[in-house]
């Protein structure tokens, strides 16, 4: 039973990884790509790791899988935040269809 739930979770994670990468290809500018890819790939990989934990149980590798999940959830949003700030400071433009840019107005 645990195996079945684990494999279902791994499949869901694989599908979300793939959708995140499709977003990386289709969306129009760096910030939108960052959003889609960070959300989908982070939670997809967490789902894969949780399925792995259910399949192999609380052995030596299972504990390391828990540690890996915690590190991933803590570090991935911080990395995306750093990339967004750096790219805005280096002058990467928003997409033409964007509505407003309060950050550029305040930093004149």
């Amino acid at each position: 039973m645990n195996d079945l739930i684990g494999f279902i979770l791994i499949s869901i994670g694989l599908v979300f990884d793939l959708l995140g990468c499709v977003g990386l290809v289709r969306l129009p500018d760096a910030y939108n790509r960052l959003q889609a890819a960070t959300k989908c790939v982070t939670m997809g990989t967490c789902s894969i790791l949780f399925g792995t934990l259910l399949v192999i149980g609380f052995t030596a590798a299972g504990m390391k899988v828990i540690l890996c999940m915690i590190f991933l959830i803590l570090t991935s949003p911080v990395a995306s935040h750093a990339i967004a700030r750096g790219s805005h400071k280096s002058g990467v433009k928003l997409w033409e269809g964007s509505v407003c840019d309060a950050y550029a107005e305040d930093n004149k």
């Binding site: 969306l27 500018d29 939108n32 928003l94 964007s98 407003c100 840019d101 309060a102 550029a104």
Partner: peptide, 10 residues
């Protein structure tokens, strides 16, 4: 149709 409407708000 890619339904996005992006922008930076405060």
């Amino acid at each position: 149709a890619l339904p996005i409407n992006p922008g930076i708000v405060k």
